[in-house]
């Protein structure tokens, strides 16, 4: 039992209600003869037939395989060590900058260096870059480094400018 011409024409024109259209569609899905008849009634059948397929890039299957086998992108979680290192590096960098560029009285330079180191450490802390424990430890280590740098600078000062007096 096939779909008669009038019903098929109304189907192609979209003039059937949803339920009837669905039952015609079920028939067309399984009957190539009626499906072909419906296709010939479609006003744009020639236009659909005229459109060529997009050209599939030859390397696409290979690219897909590569993407599938690529290891998943690792999620970088900051470790305590990394945070500590960051805090220490910030404190040390600030201290070093002040010590190397400072040419004022040693006390002021040391004070400025300490403030620089502390502000760097607290800045890192306030930006949630480091945990409080790591910041505190970084600050302590930064202070120790500062003292060592201060001592080195004093020593260098005595070595290179002894005759200025």
């Amino acid at each position: 039992m096939h779909v008669h011409d009038d019903l098929l024409r109304r189907f192609v024109d979209g003039a059937l209600d949803d339920e009837v259209a669905a039952s015609v569609a079920i028939h067309l899905d399984s009957c190539s003869r009626c499906a072909t008849r419906a296709a010939t009634l479609e006003p744009l059948a020639l236009a659909f037939a005229a459109v060529d397929d997009p050209i599939v890039p030859a390397e696409l299957p290979h690219d897909i395989l590569t993407a599938i086998h690529a290891p998943p992108v690792p999620v970088i979680e900051p470790t305590l060590g990394a945070e500590l290192g960051l805090a220490l590096a910030l404190a040390a960098a600030a201290a070093l900058l002040v010590v190397l560029t400072g040419d004022g009285p040693a006390l002021m330079v040391d004070a400025a260096a300490a403030m620089g180191g502390a502000s760097a450490a607290f800045g890192a802390l306030s930006l949630d870059l480091v945990e409080p424990g790591a910041a505190l430890l970084g600050l302590s280590l930064g202070a120790a480094l500062l003292m060592a740098l201060g001592a080195t600078r004093d020593l260098l000062g005595r070595v290179f400018s002894p005759g200025r007096v």
Partner: peptide
């Protein structure tokens, strides 16, 4: 299916 047919008819 009915919803899809409705959409196809409108689309055509």
């Amino acid at each position: 299916l009915g919803t899809v047919m409705n959409r196809i008819f409108r689309a055509r």
